[in-house]
Structure formats: structure tokens, C-alpha cells
Amino acid sequence: MKIISWNVERPKINQFEKINFIENIIKENNADLIFLRETNSILNFGKEYFKLESNILPEFFENQTYFKGENRVTIYSKYEILEEIKTYDNFTCISGKIKTEFGELVLFGSIIGSFGGRDQYFKNDLLNQKKEIENLKSNICFSGDFNISFSGFKYPSKVIVSETMKFFEDNDLAILTKENKDCAIHIVLNNEFLKDKIYTNKMIEIDRKFSDHNLVICEISANKKK
């Protein structure tokens, strides 16, 4: 199972070079699950993917102007979406259940703080998303733009980083991407789901003319030695 997570920094419908770059790099890496943020409904990765999509943003929302087709979070899945799960904010996070070769998995894609890691939106999202993760009584793949860096510069603060790491630890969740330096994009899964499996994590550097975030990829496979 290969998982991509990326913040594509608000592509507009007429930005053909950027759209082509995004679609090409995603297709080249051929992931089973794709979590995108700051995205646009114009993006298309082919008929093999099912899709969960947060609400399209109105032209003016939360003191910011948005353009045609923009939304905050989309999940593309080669596994059929068996059920969509309601979240506290349909603009900021989405959730749904799939069945994989390793069993059922609840997908949860989000932005924690759509304007960065230091305002009230961030605090509200972090609080509400922790509650929702705790209430999902199943194996979870939680991925998004957390606006938290666990390695390198501790953003937004050492306290937030420490508290968030403890939250995941207390809920038996592993941050597969925590060693990616100065990276706010993360993929988190249950330790139980990862049992008897091996995983790899890498980060692909992206030219800043296309996105202000790098792309992360995690790949999970059965441990054949078991």
C-alpha cells in the first residue's frame, strides 16, 4: 500500500503548467491513497480512483477570497469508499472507510489550521480533530497538513509538538513522517495496523513555484520474514 500526502497550494483552473506538474508527479508515483490539501476539484488522476472531497469553498470564506473549484481536502483511493463518515467541519476535514488487503481502514484527511499554526482556527481544529480521532474506534490512516513540524525547527512551538506527540502515543498511533525535517505534512497510522508490516517514508522536494510544501510518500508492505 503506497500513500501520498501533499499540500498543492491552491491550483487555479487556468494554471495549466501547475496542474500538469501535480497530475504528472502523482501519476508517476502511482499511489493507492492520495491525500491532498489546498486543492481544486479540477485535478484528475483517472477513473481508477474513488474520491472523498471536502466542500467547495465559497468565493469569500473566513476572511479569504477563493477561486473556482477550490477546496481544502481531497482523498483519492484505489480502494472503494465503503462509507463516508461525518466530521465536525465539512470544509476542513473528511473521513471515510475502505477495505484494504490488510483489513478495514478509516481514512481521515485534514488541515489543522487553514491559516497556519498560530491562530484560533489552528487551536479549534487541533482540539476538534483530536476528539474525532479518539472517537474513531477502528484502524485509522490520518493524514494532512498538520501545521506542526516534529523534526528540525519545532513549529509552531515545542509545547504543541510535545503535546501532539503524546496524544498520538496515548492513542497507539505512529507518526510515520515525524523524522522529515521541517515538514508539516504527515501520515499517521495505528501501531496495530502496522503490526507484522514494514514501511518506508520519503520526502520529495518540490520547486517552490509549484508548492510551498514537499510531497511525502509512505509505503506499507507485509513483513515476509514473519
Score class of each variant (00 low, 15 high):
Tyr88Gly: 05
Tyr88Phe: 11
Asp89Gly: 07
Asp89Met: 07
Asp89His: 04
Asp89Pro: 07
Asp89Cys: 02
Asn90Gln: 11
Asn90His: 12
Asn90Tyr: 03
Thr92Ile: 15
Ile94Ser: 03
Ile94Asn: 04
Ser95Asp: 08
Ser95Trp: 05
Ser95Pro: 03
Lys99Trp: 01
Lys99Met: 08
Thr100Lys: 10
Thr100Val: 00
Thr100Gln: 08
Gly103Gln: 09
Gly103Thr: 06
Glu104Trp: 04
Leu105Trp: 05
Leu105Thr: 05
Leu105Lys: 05
Leu105His: 07
Val106Arg: 04
Leu107Met: 00
Leu107Ile: 03
Leu107His: 07
Phe108Ile: 09
Gly109Ser: 12
Gly109Cys: 04
Ser110Ala: 15
Ser110Met: 14
Ile111Leu: 05
Ile112Phe: 14
Ile112Cys: 12
Phe115Gln: 13
Gly116Cys: 05
Arg118Pro: 00
Arg118Ile: 06
Arg118Cys: 03
Asp119Arg: 07
Tyr121Arg: 14
Tyr121Trp: 12
Phe122Glu: 06
Phe122Lys: 01
Lys123Gln: 10
Asn124Ala: 10
Asn124Phe: 03
Asp125Thr: 05
Asp125Arg: 13
Asp125Val: 00
Asp125Lys: 07
Asp125Ile: 01
Leu126Glu: 04
Asn128Lys: 10
Lys130His: 07
Lys131Ser: 11
Lys131Glu: 15
Lys131Phe: 05
Lys131Gly: 03
Lys131Arg: 10
Glu132Trp: 04
Glu134Val: 10
Glu134Ile: 06
Asn139Asp: 15
Ile140Pro: 10
Ile140Ser: 09
Cys141His: 03
Cys141Ala: 13
Cys141Phe: 02
Ser143Trp: 08
Ser143Glu: 10
Ser143Phe: 01
Gly144Gln: 08
Phe146Cys: 11
Ile148Ser: 02
Ser149His: 13
Phe150Lys: 14
Gly152Ala: 13
Phe153Asn: 15
Phe153Glu: 15
Lys154Leu: 15
Lys154Gln: 15
Lys154Pro: 09
Tyr155Trp: 03
Pro156His: 13
Pro156Gly: 14
Lys158Asp: 15
Val159Trp: 02
Val159Asn: 13
Ile160Phe: 07
Val161Glu: 10
Val161His: 03
Glu163Asn: 12
Glu163Ala: 02
Lys166Tyr: 06
Phe167Met: 00
Phe167Lys: 06
Phe167Val: 07
Phe168Cys: 05
Phe168Ser: 06
Phe168Ala: 00
Phe168Leu: 07
